[in-house]
Write a protein that binds this DNA or RNA. Structure first.
Length: 321
DNA sequence: AATAGCTTCAACCGCGCAGCA
DNA sequence: CTGCTGCGCGGTTGAAGCTAT
Protein backbone atom coordinates (compact mmCIF):
# COMPACT_ATOMS: atom_id res chain seq x y z
CA UNK A 1 0.00 0.00 0.00
CA UNK A 2 1.10 3.48 -0.63
CA UNK A 3 0.68 6.58 1.34
CA UNK A 4 -2.12 8.75 -0.07
CA UNK A 5 -0.68 11.95 -1.42
CA UNK A 6 -2.42 14.91 0.06
CA UNK A 7 -1.28 17.38 -2.56
CA UNK A 8 -4.30 18.41 -4.51
CA UNK A 9 -4.56 20.25 -7.76
CA UNK A 10 -2.27 23.18 -8.20
CA UNK A 11 -3.66 26.58 -8.82
CA UNK A 12 -2.19 26.77 -12.31
CA UNK A 13 -4.39 27.24 -15.32
CA UNK A 14 -3.06 24.35 -17.28
CA UNK A 15 -0.90 22.36 -14.92
CA UNK A 16 -2.91 20.33 -12.46
CA UNK A 17 -0.80 18.08 -10.34
CA UNK A 18 -2.08 14.57 -10.58
CA UNK A 19 -2.64 12.65 -7.42
CA UNK A 20 -0.82 9.42 -6.75
CA UNK A 21 -1.03 6.80 -4.10
CA UNK A 22 -4.03 5.32 -2.40
CA UNK A 23 -7.47 6.24 -3.54
CA UNK A 24 -9.72 8.01 -1.09
CA UNK A 25 -13.35 6.91 -0.65
CA UNK A 26 -14.42 10.16 -2.30
CA UNK A 27 -12.34 9.42 -5.37
CA UNK A 28 -13.74 5.92 -5.49
CA UNK A 29 -17.26 7.31 -5.34
CA UNK A 30 -16.56 9.73 -8.17
CA UNK A 31 -15.07 7.11 -10.39
CA UNK A 32 -17.69 4.52 -9.57
CA UNK A 33 -20.61 6.81 -10.24
CA UNK A 34 -19.05 8.10 -13.41
CA UNK A 35 -18.42 4.62 -14.72
CA UNK A 36 -21.90 3.43 -13.83
CA UNK A 37 -23.48 6.41 -15.52
CA UNK A 38 -21.28 6.71 -18.56
CA UNK A 39 -19.55 3.43 -19.06
CA UNK A 40 -15.99 2.98 -20.15
CA UNK A 41 -14.60 5.43 -22.63
CA UNK A 42 -11.26 7.10 -23.13
CA UNK A 43 -9.60 6.82 -19.75
CA UNK A 44 -8.09 10.26 -19.80
CA UNK A 45 -11.59 11.58 -20.46
CA UNK A 46 -12.92 9.49 -17.62
CA UNK A 47 -10.37 11.03 -15.28
CA UNK A 48 -11.19 14.53 -16.46
CA UNK A 49 -14.95 14.23 -16.65
CA UNK A 50 -15.25 12.49 -13.34
CA UNK A 51 -13.45 15.35 -11.69
CA UNK A 52 -10.50 13.30 -10.58
CA UNK A 53 -6.96 14.58 -10.26
CA UNK A 54 -5.73 11.26 -11.50
CA UNK A 55 -4.22 10.10 -14.73
CA UNK A 56 -6.39 7.92 -16.92
CA UNK A 57 -4.09 5.04 -16.32
CA UNK A 58 -4.62 5.24 -12.60
CA UNK A 59 -8.40 5.39 -13.07
CA UNK A 60 -8.34 2.38 -15.31
CA UNK A 61 -6.31 0.41 -12.79
CA UNK A 62 -8.55 1.40 -9.91
CA UNK A 63 -11.65 0.44 -11.82
CA UNK A 64 -10.33 -2.86 -13.09
CA UNK A 65 -8.70 -4.00 -9.89
CA UNK A 66 -11.02 -2.65 -7.27
CA UNK A 67 -14.24 -0.91 -8.24
CA UNK A 68 -15.63 -3.11 -10.96
CA UNK A 69 -18.96 -4.45 -9.67
CA UNK A 70 -18.42 -7.97 -10.89
CA UNK A 71 -15.27 -8.49 -8.86
CA UNK A 72 -15.18 -11.44 -6.57
CA UNK A 73 -13.87 -10.67 -3.13
CA UNK A 74 -12.07 -12.84 -0.68
CA UNK A 75 -9.57 -15.63 -0.77
CA UNK A 76 -9.09 -17.89 -3.71
CA UNK A 77 -10.96 -21.14 -3.47
CA UNK A 78 -9.01 -24.40 -3.86
CA UNK A 79 -10.71 -24.77 -7.22
CA UNK A 80 -9.50 -21.38 -8.30
CA UNK A 81 -5.99 -22.21 -7.11
CA UNK A 82 -6.20 -25.40 -9.06
CA UNK A 83 -7.23 -23.55 -12.16
CA UNK A 84 -4.57 -20.87 -11.75
CA UNK A 85 -1.85 -23.43 -11.44
CA UNK A 86 -3.13 -25.27 -14.42
CA UNK A 87 -3.50 -22.18 -16.54
CA UNK A 88 -0.10 -20.92 -15.48
CA UNK A 89 1.40 -24.17 -16.65
CA UNK A 90 -0.19 -23.49 -20.01
CA UNK A 91 0.24 -19.76 -20.32
CA UNK A 92 3.12 -18.76 -18.09
CA UNK A 93 2.99 -15.26 -16.67
CA UNK A 94 0.21 -14.14 -18.97
CA UNK A 95 -1.82 -12.92 -16.07
CA UNK A 96 -4.42 -11.15 -18.11
CA UNK A 97 -5.17 -14.31 -20.05
CA UNK A 98 -5.34 -16.32 -16.86
CA UNK A 99 -7.61 -13.70 -15.30
CA UNK A 100 -9.89 -13.81 -18.32
CA UNK A 101 -10.64 -17.40 -17.45
CA UNK A 102 -11.30 -16.75 -13.80
CA UNK A 103 -14.57 -14.85 -13.42
CA UNK A 104 -14.38 -11.97 -10.98
CA UNK A 105 -10.62 -12.10 -10.56
CA UNK A 106 -8.10 -9.60 -11.85
CA UNK A 107 -4.73 -10.14 -13.37
CA UNK A 108 -3.16 -8.15 -10.56
CA UNK A 109 -4.87 -10.27 -7.95
CA UNK A 110 -3.79 -13.49 -9.59
CA UNK A 111 -0.28 -12.22 -10.09
CA UNK A 112 -0.03 -11.27 -6.43
CA UNK A 113 -1.49 -14.56 -5.38
CA UNK A 114 0.95 -16.45 -7.53
CA UNK A 115 3.97 -14.51 -6.38
CA UNK A 116 3.09 -14.56 -2.71
CA UNK A 117 1.48 -17.94 -2.23
CA UNK A 118 1.90 -20.41 -5.01
CA UNK A 119 5.51 -19.62 -5.78
CA UNK A 120 6.30 -20.19 -2.15
CA UNK A 121 4.57 -23.53 -2.19
CA UNK A 122 6.43 -24.54 -5.28
CA UNK A 123 9.70 -23.73 -3.60
CA UNK A 124 8.70 -25.67 -0.52
CA UNK A 125 7.69 -28.54 -2.70
CA UNK A 126 11.01 -28.53 -4.48
CA UNK A 127 12.92 -28.42 -1.21
CA UNK A 128 11.01 -31.35 0.26
CA UNK A 129 11.05 -34.07 -2.38
CA UNK A 130 8.23 -36.52 -2.25
CA UNK A 131 8.96 -40.08 -1.13
CA UNK A 132 6.90 -41.23 -4.08
CA UNK A 133 9.28 -39.78 -6.55
CA UNK A 134 12.84 -40.38 -7.38
CA UNK A 135 15.37 -38.72 -9.56
CA UNK A 136 15.19 -41.49 -12.06
CA UNK A 137 11.84 -43.10 -11.66
CA UNK A 138 8.48 -42.35 -13.16
CA UNK A 139 5.86 -40.49 -11.18
CA UNK A 140 3.57 -42.64 -9.17
CA UNK A 141 0.38 -43.58 -10.86
CA UNK A 142 -1.47 -43.41 -7.55
CA UNK A 143 -0.59 -39.92 -6.50
CA UNK A 144 0.85 -36.74 -7.85
CA UNK A 145 2.67 -33.89 -6.21
CA UNK A 146 0.44 -30.91 -5.72
CA UNK A 147 0.48 -27.43 -4.32
CA UNK A 148 -2.26 -28.02 -1.83
CA UNK A 149 -0.15 -29.57 0.82
CA UNK A 150 1.72 -32.56 -0.42
CA UNK A 151 0.57 -35.52 -2.38
CA UNK A 152 -2.81 -35.79 -3.85
CA UNK A 153 -4.37 -39.18 -4.20
CA UNK A 154 -6.16 -40.08 -7.37
CA UNK A 155 -9.39 -39.90 -5.44
CA UNK A 156 -8.54 -36.44 -4.14
CA UNK A 157 -7.66 -35.34 -7.62
CA UNK A 158 -11.04 -36.45 -8.79
CA UNK A 159 -12.69 -34.58 -5.94
CA UNK A 160 -10.74 -31.44 -6.72
CA UNK A 161 -11.61 -31.76 -10.34
CA UNK A 162 -15.25 -32.15 -9.46
CA UNK A 163 -15.05 -29.00 -7.36
CA UNK A 164 -13.57 -27.20 -10.29
CA UNK A 165 -16.37 -28.42 -12.52
CA UNK A 166 -18.94 -27.28 -10.00
CA UNK A 167 -17.43 -23.85 -9.73
CA UNK A 168 -16.60 -23.38 -13.38
CA UNK A 169 -19.15 -25.39 -15.33
CA UNK A 170 -17.88 -23.84 -18.51
CA UNK A 171 -14.94 -26.18 -18.17
CA UNK A 172 -16.94 -29.18 -17.09
CA UNK A 173 -16.79 -30.87 -20.44
CA UNK A 174 -13.19 -30.04 -21.03
CA UNK A 175 -10.77 -32.77 -20.09
CA UNK A 176 -7.79 -30.51 -20.57
CA UNK A 177 -8.41 -27.51 -18.45
CA UNK A 178 -10.44 -29.20 -15.81
CA UNK A 179 -8.62 -32.24 -14.69
CA UNK A 180 -4.97 -31.94 -14.19
CA UNK A 181 -3.06 -29.67 -11.86
CA UNK A 182 0.21 -31.06 -13.13
CA UNK A 183 0.09 -31.27 -16.86
CA UNK A 184 3.79 -31.92 -17.12
CA UNK A 185 3.23 -35.36 -15.77
CA UNK A 186 -0.03 -36.06 -17.46
CA UNK A 187 1.37 -35.02 -20.75
CA UNK A 188 3.45 -38.15 -20.46
CA UNK A 189 1.08 -40.49 -18.80
CA UNK A 190 -2.17 -39.31 -20.30
CA UNK A 191 -3.95 -40.88 -23.22
CA UNK A 192 -3.32 -38.15 -25.71
CA UNK A 193 0.38 -38.27 -26.18
CA UNK A 194 2.61 -40.98 -27.29
CA UNK A 195 5.40 -41.51 -24.80
CA UNK A 196 7.94 -42.12 -27.46
CA UNK A 197 7.23 -39.62 -30.17
CA UNK A 198 6.13 -36.05 -30.50
CA UNK A 199 3.01 -37.09 -32.24
CA UNK A 200 -0.47 -36.55 -31.03
CA UNK A 201 -1.94 -39.99 -30.88
CA UNK A 202 -4.73 -42.14 -29.66
CA UNK A 203 -7.54 -39.71 -30.25
CA UNK A 204 -10.80 -40.76 -31.71
CA UNK A 205 -12.83 -38.31 -33.77
CA UNK A 206 -15.55 -38.36 -31.17
CA UNK A 207 -13.08 -36.82 -28.76
CA UNK A 208 -13.65 -33.49 -30.41
CA UNK A 209 -17.25 -32.95 -29.71
CA UNK A 210 -18.91 -29.96 -31.29
CA UNK A 211 -19.96 -28.59 -27.92
CA UNK A 212 -16.46 -27.43 -27.21
CA UNK A 213 -15.22 -27.23 -30.71
CA UNK A 214 -14.01 -23.67 -30.61
CA UNK A 215 -12.54 -24.23 -27.20
CA UNK A 216 -10.45 -27.15 -28.28
CA UNK A 217 -9.56 -25.75 -31.61
CA UNK A 218 -7.52 -23.05 -29.94
CA UNK A 219 -6.60 -24.36 -26.55
CA UNK A 220 -3.04 -25.54 -26.36
CA UNK A 221 -2.53 -28.99 -25.11
CA UNK A 222 -0.77 -29.56 -21.89
CA UNK A 223 2.88 -28.97 -22.16
CA UNK A 224 4.71 -31.95 -23.37
CA UNK A 225 8.37 -31.64 -22.68
CA UNK A 226 10.89 -33.92 -24.26
CA UNK A 227 8.81 -37.00 -24.66
CA UNK A 228 11.59 -39.41 -24.01
CA UNK A 229 12.55 -37.81 -20.70
CA UNK A 230 11.24 -39.20 -17.47
CA UNK A 231 9.56 -36.43 -15.53
CA UNK A 232 9.84 -36.43 -11.77
CA UNK A 233 8.13 -34.26 -9.22
CA UNK A 234 11.31 -32.25 -8.85
CA UNK A 235 11.43 -31.70 -12.55
CA UNK A 236 7.85 -30.55 -12.45
CA UNK A 237 8.56 -27.99 -9.78
CA UNK A 238 11.67 -26.73 -11.47
CA UNK A 239 9.77 -26.37 -14.68
CA UNK A 240 6.93 -24.60 -12.99
CA UNK A 241 9.38 -22.12 -11.55
CA UNK A 242 10.89 -21.61 -14.96
CA UNK A 243 7.58 -21.63 -16.69
CA UNK A 244 8.02 -18.43 -18.64
CA UNK A 245 11.09 -19.82 -20.25
CA UNK A 246 9.39 -23.09 -20.97
CA UNK A 247 6.45 -21.41 -22.60
CA UNK A 248 8.68 -19.30 -24.75
CA UNK A 249 10.89 -22.18 -25.71
CA UNK A 250 7.85 -24.27 -26.34
CA UNK A 251 7.03 -22.11 -29.30
CA UNK A 252 9.97 -23.69 -31.02
CA UNK A 253 9.77 -27.14 -29.57
CA UNK A 254 7.89 -30.35 -29.62
CA UNK A 255 5.37 -28.73 -27.38
CA UNK A 256 4.01 -26.70 -30.20
CA UNK A 257 4.31 -29.54 -32.61
CA UNK A 258 2.03 -31.44 -30.30
CA UNK A 259 -0.36 -28.55 -30.20
CA UNK A 260 -0.34 -28.26 -33.90
CA UNK A 261 -0.85 -31.92 -34.41
CA UNK A 262 -3.76 -31.78 -32.03
CA UNK A 263 -5.14 -28.76 -33.74
CA UNK A 264 -4.67 -30.25 -37.13
CA UNK A 265 -6.52 -33.34 -36.11
CA UNK A 266 -9.27 -31.33 -34.64
CA UNK A 267 -9.56 -28.97 -37.54
CA UNK A 268 -9.85 -31.85 -39.83
CA UNK A 269 -12.52 -33.52 -37.75
CA UNK A 270 -14.50 -30.38 -37.26
CA UNK A 271 -13.89 -29.15 -40.78
CA UNK A 272 -13.92 -25.56 -39.65
CA UNK A 273 -13.19 -22.63 -41.89
CA UNK A 274 -10.29 -21.03 -40.15
CA UNK A 275 -8.23 -19.78 -43.06
CA UNK A 276 -5.06 -19.82 -41.04
CA UNK A 277 -5.67 -23.39 -40.20
CA UNK A 278 -6.42 -24.27 -43.75
CA UNK A 279 -3.41 -22.54 -45.14
CA UNK A 280 -0.79 -23.29 -42.61
CA UNK A 281 -1.84 -26.46 -40.95
CA UNK A 282 -4.07 -28.15 -43.37
CA UNK A 283 -1.62 -27.38 -46.08
CA UNK A 284 -4.45 -26.47 -48.39
CA UNK A 285 -6.27 -29.74 -48.15
CA UNK A 286 -4.03 -32.35 -46.67
CA UNK A 287 -5.89 -35.28 -45.24
CA UNK A 288 -6.17 -36.01 -41.56
CA UNK A 289 -3.68 -38.80 -41.49
CA UNK A 290 -1.10 -36.63 -43.10
CA UNK A 291 -1.21 -34.11 -40.29
CA UNK A 292 0.60 -36.40 -37.99
CA UNK A 293 3.56 -36.60 -40.26
CA UNK A 294 3.65 -33.22 -41.94
CA UNK A 295 6.20 -30.62 -41.07
CA UNK A 296 4.52 -27.44 -40.05
CA UNK A 297 5.50 -23.85 -40.21
CA UNK A 298 5.87 -23.43 -36.49
CA UNK A 299 7.05 -19.85 -36.61
CA UNK A 300 3.65 -18.68 -37.72
CA UNK A 301 1.99 -20.06 -34.63
CA UNK A 302 2.07 -18.91 -31.12
CA UNK A 303 0.08 -19.23 -27.96
CA UNK A 304 -1.94 -16.15 -28.68
CA UNK A 305 -3.24 -17.65 -31.84
CA UNK A 306 -3.98 -20.88 -30.15
CA UNK A 307 -5.68 -19.25 -27.21
CA UNK A 308 -7.49 -16.35 -28.75
CA UNK A 309 -10.85 -17.99 -28.98
CA UNK A 310 -10.75 -19.78 -25.69
CA UNK A 311 -13.86 -18.71 -23.77
CA UNK A 312 -13.48 -15.73 -21.53
CA UNK A 313 -16.00 -14.27 -19.21
CA UNK A 314 -18.02 -11.35 -20.42
CA UNK A 315 -18.23 -9.90 -16.93
CA UNK A 316 -14.59 -8.96 -17.25
CA UNK A 317 -15.48 -6.56 -19.99
CA UNK A 318 -18.02 -4.77 -17.93
CA UNK A 319 -19.59 -1.84 -19.58
CA UNK A 320 -22.75 0.01 -18.81
CA UNK A 321 -25.22 -0.18 -21.63
C1' DA B 1 4.17 -4.42 25.30
C1' DA B 2 7.65 -3.57 21.94
C1' DT B 3 9.65 -4.45 17.77
C1' DA B 4 11.84 -6.86 14.10
C1' DG B 5 10.92 -9.61 10.27
C1' DC B 6 7.72 -11.31 7.04
C1' DT B 7 3.60 -11.27 4.02
C1' DT B 8 0.08 -9.22 1.40
C1' DC B 9 -1.67 -6.51 -2.11
C1' DA B 10 -2.84 -1.82 -4.02
C1' DA B 11 -0.65 1.03 -6.91
C1' DC B 12 3.08 2.69 -9.79
C1' DC B 13 6.44 2.24 -13.59
C1' DG B 14 8.16 1.23 -17.95
C1' DC B 15 7.57 -0.99 -22.08
C1' DG B 16 5.29 -2.50 -26.32
C1' DC B 17 1.56 -2.09 -29.37
C1' DA B 18 -2.20 0.03 -32.05
C1' DG B 19 -4.42 3.85 -34.02
C1' DC B 20 -4.21 8.22 -35.89
C1' DA B 21 -2.58 12.58 -37.96
C1' DC C 1 7.67 7.01 -42.39
C1' DT C 2 7.50 9.46 -38.09
C1' DG C 3 5.79 11.17 -33.94
C1' DC C 4 2.18 11.40 -30.68
C1' DT C 5 -1.31 9.53 -27.68
C1' DG C 6 -3.77 6.11 -25.24
C1' DC C 7 -4.21 1.51 -23.67
C1' DG C 8 -2.92 -2.82 -21.69
C1' DC C 9 0.35 -5.76 -19.71
C1' DG C 10 3.92 -7.64 -16.59
C1' DG C 11 7.27 -6.43 -13.17
C1' DT C 12 8.24 -3.99 -9.13
C1' DT C 13 7.61 -1.18 -5.07
C1' DG C 14 6.43 -0.07 -0.50
C1' DA C 15 3.05 0.70 3.28
C1' DA C 16 -0.17 -1.77 6.16
C1' DG C 17 -1.08 -5.73 8.54
C1' DC C 18 0.38 -9.93 10.64
C1' DT C 19 3.40 -13.04 13.25
C1' DA C 20 7.19 -14.44 15.98
C1' DT C 21 10.32 -13.38 19.48
Amino acid sequence: MRKPETTGASSGMTTTKLRKGLWSPEEDDKLMSYMLNNGQGCWSDVARNAGLQRCGKSCRLRWINYLRPDLKRGAFSPQEEHLIIHLHSLLGNRWSQIAARLPGRTDNEIKNFWNSTIKKRLKNLSSTPSPNTSSTGSPSTDSKPNLFGGLLSTQDQQQQSQGLMDEFPIYASDPIIGLDPFPFISAHSGPFFSTTTSTFTGVEPSFFHEDHESFFSNLPLLQSVNNTTTVTATTVVERSLKNETIVKEANHSNYLINNINCLANHNNFSNNNNPKTDNNINGGGVGANNFLHEEFSIGEWDLDDLMKDVPSFPCLNFQVQ
